[in-house]
């Protein structure tokens, strides 16, 4: 396994205290290498979203360890002071719905992230346009989000997740609103991007259409993960 990517060990998350406490994660182990796309599958209430929020540094785990690339980001407590900067620079997010900012054009939706990191506007837009070429939406660069189709919006959302070249991308049901053809296209793109940008991608999904495409799958049930070899079918 490559050094980069993400590794979590014995990750636990407890909500509440005392008799009403709920253990959403009971010791999750997971490892995703750079350039790899893995599926995270589980029924509702299994702890998928909690795991995603812990991985995304949005909520604090109760115990365990998380290593992002070479950096330990959590070990019984956050080891990174600025979680906001961690999310901005080291973690990419792709949501179920694209959630593009409706008042920014497509380019600025993507370029906003490097701009937030201090990259000059022109350079940030250049980075966005490069990604649009790779994702085949360069002809829509000046459009507003409302002028794009669902598939185009999702590709722009993928570009936003990738633009800061994060070592890990968390994709929360990215194909849910798409038909089979477009869903498989998104997975193909994610695999290409993972390879091209050496990014570890974790795809949380219920989507039966795309599950066979993963080479590795983590099942999560009652806060515990089980690793399984996937079918790794062509998309």
């Amino acid at each position: 396994m490559a050094d980069k990517g993400i590794r979590i060990e014995g990750l636990k998350k407890r909500y509440g205290k005392g008799d009403t406490a709920v253990d959403a994660l009971k010791g999750v182990d997971m490892q995703v290498a750079s350039g790899e796309v893995v599926g995270l599958i589980g029924p509702s209430g299994s702890g998928k979203s909690t795991l995603l929020k812990c991985l995304g540094a949005v909520i604090e785990p109760t115990a365990g360890r998380m290593i992002l690339g070479d950096e330990v980001i959590y070990d019984g407590g956050w080891k990174v002071k600025d979680l906001r900067a961690l999310r901005r620079d080291k973690i990419g997010f792709i949501f179920q719905a694209p959630y593009l900012i409706p008042f920014l054009d497509v380019t600025d939706n993507v370029a906003l992230l490097p701009m937030l990191a201090g990259v000059p506007n022109r350079e940030a837009r250049k980075q966005a346009l490069e990604l649009f070429k790779a994702l085949d939406v360069e002809n829509r660069a000046k459009a507003m989000p409302s002028q794009l189709s669902g598939g185009e919006q999702q590709r722009v959302a993928i570009a936003r997740g990738l633009v800061n070249r994060p070592p890990v991308i968390l994709a929360d049901e990215p194909t849910a609103p798409l038909d089979s053809e477009r869903a498989l296209a998104v997975i193909r793109i994610l695999n290409e991007m993972a390879r091209q940008f050496e990014t570890a991608i974790i795809v949380v999904t219920h989507d039966e259409k795309i599950i066979p495409t993963f080479k590795r799958i983590y099942h999560i049930r009652d806060g515990v993960t089980y690793e399984e070899a996937g079918q790794g079918r062509d998309f």
Binding site: A85, R87, R88, F93, I101, L112, R160
Partner: peptide
Amino acid sequence: AVLKLIGTK
């Protein structure tokens, strides 16, 4: 929420 998640101050 998206802006905050992606690291907006």
